[in-house]
Amino acid sequence: MSTPDQPAAFKPPANDPWKGFRGVCSGTLILESIVVFLAIPAIAKLGEGVGAGAVVYLVVLGVVMILACGVQSRPWAMGLNLGLQVALIAGWFVHPAVGAMGLLFAAVWVYMLYLRKDIQARIERGLLPGQRD
C-alpha cells in the first residue's frame, strides 16, 4: 500500500496494451498495401502509363507490407514500418502520385509514433484501466 508521501509501486497492466497497438499497426499496413496495389492501375491511366519496373517495385513493396504485419511484435517492427514509408516516398521516381501517397502515410506513422509514446507514458504512470484498483 502506498502512503500520500510515497508513490504507488509500478503495477503492470492486467491486459497487454501493446496487443491493440500492434493490431492497429498491422491494420494500417494492410490498408496501405491495398492502396499501393490500387495505385498500379491508377498511375497506368495517368500520363505516359506505367513501366514494368514500376509495377515490380509497387508489387514488391505491397507484398513486403503484408509480410510486415506478421512481425509487429518484434522490437524492430516500428523501424521496419518507417523504412517502408521511406521506400514508398522514394516511389516518387515511379510516379509523383506514389510519392505523395508515401508522404500521406508517413504522416499517419508519425502519429503512430506519438501513440506509442503516449501508451508507454501511461503504463509508466499506472493510468491504464488494467493498472488501477
Results as ranks from 00 to 15, higher is better:
Gly126Pro: 08
Val108Lys: 07
Tyr111Lys: 08
Arg22His: 12
Gly99Lys: 01
Val108Ala: 13
Gly49Met: 12
Met101Ile: 05
Val55Phe: 03
Phe21His: 14
Gln72Asn: 07
Glu124Gln: 12
Pro13Lys: 11
Arg125Asp: 04
Lys45Ile: 15
Leu38Pro: 02
Met101Pro: 00
Ala97Leu: 15
Gly20Pro: 05
Leu61Gln: 03
Arg122His: 11
Trp18Thr: 02
Gly47Ser: 13
Gly83Lys: 12
Tyr114Phe: 07
Asp16Cys: 13
Ala42Asp: 01
Lys19Glu: 07
Val55Arg: 06
Trp18Asn: 00
Ser73Asn: 13
Asp118Gly: 00
Leu58Ala: 05
Ile30Met: 12
Val63Arg: 08
Glu48Pro: 05
Phe10Met: 07
Gly102Leu: 00
Arg125Asn: 08
Lys11Glu: 14
Ile123Val: 15
Lys11Arg: 15
Ala106Leu: 14
Trp18Leu: 09
Asp5Ala: 13
His95Gln: 09
Leu61Gly: 03
Ala107Ser: 13
Ala121Met: 07
Leu88Met: 15
Val63Tyr: 09
Met78Val: 09
Ala68Trp: 01
Lys11Gly: 04
Gln85Glu: 15
Leu84Arg: 00
Ala90Asn: 04
Leu38Trp: 02
Gln85Cys: 15
Gln72Leu: 10
Ala8Phe: 04
Leu115Arg: 12
Leu38Tyr: 04
Gly27Asp: 15
Phe37Trp: 01
Ile89Val: 15
Ala121Cys: 03
Asp133His: 12
Ile119Leu: 10
Ala68Cys: 13
Arg74Gly: 00
Gln6Asn: 10
Ile34Tyr: 07
Ala77Asp: 00
Gly27Ala: 12
Ser73His: 12
Arg116Phe: 02
Glu48Trp: 09
Leu31Tyr: 14
Leu61Ser: 05
Tyr114Leu: 08
Cys25Met: 13
Gly83Met: 05
Tyr114Arg: 03
Phe10Ala: 14
Ala44Ser: 14
Val63Ser: 05
Pro41Ser: 00
Ala100Gly: 10
Leu38Phe: 10
Leu29Cys: 07
Leu29Glu: 10
Phe21Cys: 04
Tyr111Val: 13
Val56Leu: 14
Phe21Ala: 11
Lys117Met: 07
Tyr114Asp: 00
Asp118Pro: 01
Val36Glu: 02
Gly23Ser: 09
Ala87Thr: 05
Ile123Phe: 04
Ile34Phe: 11
Ala100Ile: 14
Leu103Pro: 00
Asp16Met: 12
Ser33Met: 10
Ala9Leu: 15
Ile34Pro: 00
Ala90Tyr: 06
Ile34His: 05
Gly49Ile: 13
Cys25Glu: 08
Gly23Trp: 00
Gly20Met: 10
Gly49Arg: 07
Gln6Cys: 09
Val24Ser: 10
Pro17Thr: 08
Leu31Gly: 15
Ala106Tyr: 04
Ala39Ile: 03
Leu61Asn: 01
Trp76Asp: 00
Gly23Thr: 03
Leu67Glu: 14
Trp18Arg: 07
Ile66Met: 14
Val60Phe: 13
Phe105Leu: 10
Arg125Leu: 13
Gly62Arg: 02
Val59Thr: 13
